[in-house]
């Protein structure tokens, strides 16, 4: 998993729970990489998963809630760091529509080893209701949820978002339904 996810996670933990919390997470989970995360490196997803579980245990906050907040935080980072994608798209649904076939394609050009989730985007032309299906070997639908909400608030657009989760063998699936509020 790309290092930026880990450094952004560290930023969020340090900003919310203090610098000591991040030290504690690293020391308690004893990650094989020894926790010296850099934005340009790559690290095992399991290290992040272990830290999230430990954070949940220490703070008594549900892991899914933590991941959702992390998603929102990532959305803020991305919208400032990769602003051109967002300016180019112009609206939340247009951006989301092109996550799979444009944003992720560009990400892969920059980082050939990046593993991006699949996002199937559908928009009902009559009702304008958007459905997105997230599929990944990693259980990060909550991060995706936070990202979607973060993107909507970047554009200052209001949507009622509902979700439905399931597995297909070892693949995590989640359908997000966005309805203009």
């Amino acid at each position: 998993m790309k290092g930026i996810v880990f450094t952004e996670f560290a930023e969020l933990v340090e900003g919310t729970f203090g610098e000591d919390m991040m030290d504690t997470l690293i020391e308690n989970t004893n990650p094989p990489s020894e926790g010296a995360y850099t934005a340009v490196g790559s690290y095992d997803f399991e290290e992040l998963a272990a830290m999230v579980t430990e954070l949940s245990r220490l703070t008594n906050i549900e892991a899914s809630k933590l991941l959702y907040v992390f998603g929102e935080h990532l959305a803020k980072t991305f919208t400032s760091k990769f602003a051109q994608f967002f300016v180019e798209a112009g609206s939340a649904t247009k951006f989301l529509k092109h996550v799979d076939d444009h944003v992720h394609v560009e990400v892969k050009k920059l980082y050939p080893d990046a593993e991006t989730p699949a996002f199937d985007f559908r928009e009902d032309p009559q009702t304008g209701i958007v459905t997105m299906v997230y599929e990944s070997r990693r259980p990060l639908a909550d991060v995706a949820h936070g990202l979607i909400v973060g993107v909507c608030s970047y554009y200052d657009e209001q949507f009622n978002i509902s979700r439905e989760d399931w597995y297909v063998e070892d693949v995590y699936c989640c359908r997000f339904t966005l309805e203009a509020a």
């Binding site: 610098e19 000591d20 020391e27 934005a39």
Partner: peptide, 24 residues
């Protein structure tokens, strides 16, 4: 000790990122 370890981690992170950048 905790601060020492953090500094050591930050240092190795910097070295690691420098290595990666040189490699790149």
């Amino acid at each position: 000790e905790k601060l020492k370890r953090r500094v050591a981690r930050e240092k190795s992170a910097r070295q690691e990122s420098e290595r990666l950048l040189e490699e790149i």
